[in-house]
Nucleic acid binder design. Structure first.
Lengths: 119, 119
DNA sequence: CAAATATACATAAGAATTTTAGGTATACAA
DNA sequence: TTGTATACCTAAAATTCTTATGTATATTTG
């Protein structure tokens, strides 16, 4: 039984930074691959962040001073852990508030009844 | 007193078709400029659809058979009214369902408490 | 132990969508 | 008559993501 189609990918656009910042806010520190798997697991595979989108985003957030990195060796492999900077913490809150506000606005816009008798 | 900043435009990405289809579903028929003004009014200027984004989207939806047009002269000016085709009506419902589902998934993803004691 | 899969990083070409910036023209208000 | 609103349109550039590819180590499976 096939249940969970992914969303048509357009919807995800613009939410990636918010997702990343918020996951790091809740989880302290995470590495890239872990983020992709966590999002996949938590959403029942409905949202799948591709590495081609994630890694450039992580690099951008780092260069903007939102994230800082810490490299840890796991055997012979390097794993790059990301944590929020102070700036990143406030940005995370702003982004989440903005997204919640946006979603409420969208619901209002979409749930509207046909306007009869008031316009 | 300045209250209502627009959303950082990234969030809007991917929602334009859904907004257009749903407005037409609720309002029967509308023309392009009307859509921009309606969205602006209904959202307190938080969401502003630019004409550069809207018109190409309307043309695309029409060429995909989601919309049909009707030209009406207002004085010397042509006004292009858009209405949903049958295909457009079912697409509108699908798109709205998809967006609502997506927003619920996002809220779940963002409202998560730090996971302590279960991993 | 060989092969396949999973982990883990990364970049780059191309696609899709939007912004920004223009263009045209009529209608109306100051 | 000058500015603003209405009403359509297009195109270059920017943004963001997908798809495809590359590299390498670790683990599982036959």
């Amino acid at each position: 039984m096939y249940i969970c189609p992914m969303y048509s990918s357009e919807l995800l656009k613009g939410t990636l930074k918010t997702i990343v910042l918020n996951l790091l806010k809740d989880n302290g520190r995470m590495y890239g691959y872990e983020i992709t798997q966590r999002v996949k697991d938590l959403t029942g595979e409905k949202i799948q962040i591709t590495e081609g989108a994630l890694y450039p985003t992580l690099h951008a957030l780092e260069s903007q001073g939102e994230l800082q990195t810490e490299e840890v060796f796991i055997g012979k492999r390097v794993r790059k852990y990301y944590t929020l900077t102070e700036k990143g913490q406030s940005t995370a809150k702003e982004k989440v508030n903005e997204l919640v506000d946006f979603m409420n606005t969208m619901k209002f816009l979409l749930d509207l009844e046909p306007r009869t008798g008031n316009g």
